[in-house]
C-alpha cells in the first residue's frame, strides 16, 4: 500500500489516544470468515485424501472385484477345482456373455461342437480337463491368503521387533540391529528357496519362509518412528504419571505410527504375492491338484503357443492383483504422508 492511499495521518506511538482506536464490529468479508473446519481424525483425513487419488481408488475397486470373484467364483462355477473331465482337455474358453471374444473356437474350429460338449467352460479347461475358471479363482484365494498372512507377519513380528529395539535402545538395540543386518545380508531369494527345499513345499512352508525375511523393512520403519516419538513430551508425561514401557508403546507411540504401519503392510502385500507366484513358477509352490496363480502360469507357459488361454487368465489376474495392490499402497503413502509424495 502506498502512502498516498493511507486514510489516516500517521502518528507516533506516544501521541496515540484512546479515541484513535474504534471498534469496527464484525466485517462481513469472505477473508474474515471462519477458517477452522470441523475437526477430523488423522485416519479420516487420510481416507479423504486417498479417495481423491484416482489410481488408488480404481485399484481398490478392482481388488474388491477380484476378491468377490475369488470368494464366489469356485462356488458358482459348478465344478470342483480337481474335477477331471476325461477327453475334454484343453478346451478353449467359451463365455456366452462375451461370445464375440471367447466363443469356444480355436483356430476357427468350434471344439465344443466337435467333441460334443454342452457345458460352457468360461475360461476353458486345462490339460486334464479341469475347469480353469474354478482353478484360477482357487489360485487367487491362495494369493489373498498369502497377502493376509503377510499383513499378520508384518504387524506381529515387524512391529514388535522394531518397537522393542527402538524403545529400549542401548545394548538391546545394538544386538537386535546386528542380528537384523545379518539376516538382511542374506538375499531373500536364497532364504526362501532353501527353506522351501528343506521342508516339503506347501502352504505352511511358503508362509514360514515369508516369515523369515518379510518383517525386516517394517521393523526398521517402526524402530525409526519409535526413536522419533519416544523423546517427545507426551511420552515423558506418561512416564511421569507412572506408565510402564508396554503401556507407553501401546497407548502413546502406536497410535502415532499407525499410518506408517498401514503403508508398510500395504507394500509387503504385493511382495508376498509375488514371492508365492515366483516360487510356484520355479516349481516350489503348492502341489497338484491344488492351484495357485504361479503354478497355473507355470503350466500355461508350457503350452503357451498351442493353448493360449491356459496362460492368459492367470497372468491377467496376477498382473491386476500386483498392479492394484501397488496402486493402493502408493495412494495410502501419499494419503498418510503428503510430503513424502512420489517415492
Amino acid at each position: 500500500m502506498s502512502e498516498k492511499e493511507f486514510p489516516y495521518p500517521l502518528k507516533s506511538p506516544e501521541d496515540l489516544v484512546k479515541e484513535d482506536f474504534k471498534h469496527v464490529g464484525y466485517l462481513n468479508l469472505p477473508q474474515q470468515e471462519m477458517i477452522q473446519g470441523t475437526g477430523i481424525s488423522n485416519l479420516k483425513d487420510a481416507w479423504l485424501r486417498f479417495c481423491k487419488n484416482k489410481g488408488a481408488l480404481v485399484g481398490l475397486i478392482i481388488i474388491l472385484i477380484i476378491l468377490f470373484w475369488a470368494i464366489i467364483g469356485p462356488m458358482i462355477s459348478g465344478y470342483r477345482y480337481d474335477l477331471v473331465h476325461k477327453g475334454w482337455n484343453n478346451l478353449p474358453p467359451k463365455m456366452p456373455a462375451l461370445s464375440f471374444l471367447f466363443d469356444g473356437t480355436e483356430r476357427g474350429v468350434d471344439i465344443y461342437a466337435k467333441i460334443g460338449v454342452e457345458q460352457n467352460f468360461w475360461f476353458g479347461t486345462d490339460e486334464l480337463g479341469r475347469d480353469l475358471f474354478t482353478r484360477v479363482w482357487e489360485g487367487t484365494r491362495v494369493s489373498f491368503i498369502i497377502a493376509f498372512v503377510a499383513v499378520i507377519i508384518d504387524m506381529l513380528f515387524g512391529v514388535t521387533y522394531g518397537m522393542i529395539s527402538g524403545y529400549f535402545g542401548g545394548v538391546v538395540d545394538m544386538v537386535m540391529q546386528r542380528i537384523l543386518e545379518i539376516i538382511n545380508g542374506i538375499p531373500n531369494l536364497v532364504v526362501v528357496t532353501l527353506f522351501v527345499l528343506v521342508f516339503k513345499p506347501g502352504m505352511l512352508t511358503i508362509i514360514l519362509s515369508l516369515m523369515i525375511t518379510g518383517w525386516i523393512n517394517m521393523s526398521r520403519v517402526v524402530r525409526s518412528q519409535v526413536l522419533k516419538y519416544k523423546e517427545q513430551e507426551f511420552v515423558l508425561a506418561a512416564k511421569v504419571l507412572g506408565a510402564n514401557g508396554f503401556m507407553i508403546l501401546l497407548k502413546e507411540v502406536l497410535p502415532n505410527i499407525l499410518g506408517q504401519m498401514i503403508v508398510m503392510t500395504m507394500f509387503s502385500i504385493p511382495n508376498a504375492i509375488f514371492y508365492e507366484a515366483f516360487l510356484a513358477f520355479v516349481g516350489l509352490g503348492l502341489r497338484e491338484p491344488f492351484a495357485s496363480l504361479g503354478s497355473l502360469i507355470n503350466k500355461g507357459y508350457n503350452s503357451m503357443l498351442t493353448h493360449m488361454h491356459l496362460l492368459l487368465f492367470p497372468v491377467i489376474v496376477l498382473a491386476l492383483l500386483m498392479l492394484c495392490f501397488n496402486l493402493i499402497a502408493d495412494g495410502l503413502r501419499d494419503a498418510f504422508d503428503p510430503k513424502m509424495k512420489g517415492f
Binding site: G55, M304, L305, A319, N326
Partner: peptide, 22 residues
C-alpha cells in the same frame, strides 16, 4: 514406472515372447 514396479518380470517375459517372439 508404476506398471514396471508392480508387474512381475516373468509376466513381462511371457507377454513379450508371445507378442514379439511368436
Amino acid at each position: 514406472a508404476v506398471v514396471g514396479v508392480s508387474i512381475p518380470s516373468f509376466v513381462f517375459a511371457l507377454t513379450l515372447s508371445f507378442l514379439l517372439g511368436y
